[in-house]
Amino acid sequence: MLAQLLQGCLNLIITPCCPLCQNPLEPVASGPGPCGACLQRLSLPPEGLQGHEPLPWWSLGFYEGQLRRLLLRQRKNPSPVVIASLSERLAEPWATSPLRPLVVAIPSWKRQGNPLPGLISRSLGFEQVTPLERARPTLGQHHLGKQLRALNQDGAFRCRPGAERPGPLLRRRPLLIVDDILTTGATACAAATALRSAGYRVEGLLCLARTAEKGRDLRSARR
């Protein structure tokens, strides 16, 4: 009886569980991240999403339904374990790159800003760099259209003093901007402009979710 109890406790300790639903994971998983049931519930395509406009981007899925609700909860009360499980899946396309990418999180100008870009960046397993800072405050963009978002973010970023001229090793390595959601791309493009002007090799954006533009079916963007 005692042996069975000890074995049951040991199984609880060593059996991996899905960080989202806490159910045991199958012995042979299809890939990193949440369990199959959670992937289906969040409508995450097996190979994620990828596109090229307004800059190359990689995403887990569309910002809608259960994924949207999950990310809104994470913004208010972030769980490092949940974000790490999603970020591990997001890192897959770059895991076998000959040159390991650098990652830079979109910084917030607010003291209590969005915690997710930094948390995602730290969870990807790539070398994190912090050359970017806000040059000025910006408006909240929830109700702004595409053109107003571009104006709002124009010149909003700059490189920190001492980071304007990266050395040759840093210039060779691909750099990925990290954010939680891609909508029009105004923020990511403004950040990319500042980084490229300083000499960094910006390859695109990693984000957890992509907002579909009105009147456009982004399902053609799936890999």
Rank of each mutant, 00 (worst) to 15 (best):
L144R: 00
S197P: 07
R210V: 12
A192Y: 03
W58V: 13
S85D: 08
C207G: 08
R89C: 05
L60M: 11
G113R: 07
Q74I: 03
A150C: 02
L116S: 03
C17Y: 03
R173F: 10
S121Y: 01
T15H: 00
P19K: 00
E127P: 03
I13P: 04
D180S: 09
Q7N: 01
Y63G: 08
L208Q: 08
L151H: 07
L132Q: 05
G185T: 04
R165P: 08
G61E: 13
A135G: 12
D180C: 10
I106M: 15
A91H: 09
T187N: 09
L44M: 00
F126T: 07
R160G: 08
D154Y: 00
P24Q: 03
P78K: 06
P56Q: 06
L12S: 02
S123D: 03
I120T: 01
D154W: 04
E213W: 12
L205G: 12
S197L: 12
A221V: 01
P93E: 12
G33D: 00
R68L: 12
A209H: 14
F62L: 11
D179W: 05
L39Y: 05
G185C: 10
P32L: 03
G33H: 03
L25W: 02
S87V: 12
I177Q: 12
A105L: 03
C189A: 15
P32H: 02
L70H: 00
S87M: 12
G167M: 13
L205N: 11
A163P: 00
M1T: 10
G167K: 10
V202A: 11
